[in-house]
C-alpha cells in the first residue's frame, strides 16, 4: 500500500498529465458540441506540453542562464544545477502548433455552423441524414 502511494506521490506529474489527457479525451468522445470537443482537444495537447515541461524540472535547479558564462573560471558548469532548457524550447513550438490547430479547428467549426446553423453533432447528423443541407 505504501509502495503504491509512493508511486502516486513520487510521480504526481505523470498522473496529472494522464488525468488531463483523460479529461481531454472524454470531452472529445462524449461531448456532442463541436466547441466542447475542440476544448477537449486543446486540453489533450496541453497535457502533453505539461508532460514535456515536467520532465525538464529538477530539484534545486535554477533557470538555465549562465551568468558568467565565459568568465567563470575555476569552477566548471554543473548541468545538475540548471533545468533542462530543451523541452521548454520544444514546447514553445508545440504551443504554436496547438494554437494553429485550434485556429483551424475553430475556422472549420464556423464553416460547419454556416452550413447547419448548429454546432451540436447529433443535430448536424440528423440534418445530414435528412439531406436538408441548409447551405449558406
Amino acid at each position: 500500500m505504501e509502495e503504491l502511494a509512493a508511486v502516486f506521490v513520487a510521480r504526481y506529474n505523470y498522473w496529472g498529465v494522464i488525468i488531463l489527457m483523460g479529461i481531454g479525451l472524454y470531452a472529445m468522445i462524449a461531448k456532442t458540441n463541436m466547441v466542447k470537443k475542440i476544448i477537449g482537444m486543446n486540453i489533450f495537447q496541453t497535457a502533453i506540453i505539461l508532460f514535456y515541461i515536467s520532465t525538464a524540472a529538477k530539484y534545486g535547479a535554477s533557470i538555465p542562464i549562465i551568468a558568467h558564462g565565459h568568465g567563470a573560471q575555476g569552477h566548471g558548469i554543473r548541468a545538475a544545477d540548471y533545468m533542462n532548457p530543451l523541452p521548454h524550447v520544444l514546447m514553445l513550438t508545440a504551443i504554436v502548433v496547438s494554437v494553429a490547430t485550434l485556429g483551424v479547428a475553430l475556422a472549420l467549426a464556423v464553416r460547419v455552423y454556416w452550413n447547419y446553423d448548429s454546432l451540436e453533432e447529433d443535430e448536424i447528423l440528423n440534418q445530414i441524414k435528412a439531406g436538408q443541407l441548409n447551405r449558406k
Partner: peptide, 20 residues
C-alpha cells in the same frame, strides 16, 4: 474542409483524430 456540404464536418472529425 473547403469543399461544400459535409466537407467541413468531415474535415473537423479528421482534425480531431489526426490531432490525437
Amino acid at each position: 474542409g473547403m469543399g461544400s456540404g459535409r466537407a467541413a464536418v468531415s474535415s473537423l472529425s479528421y482534425l480531431f483524430i489526426g490531432t490525437i
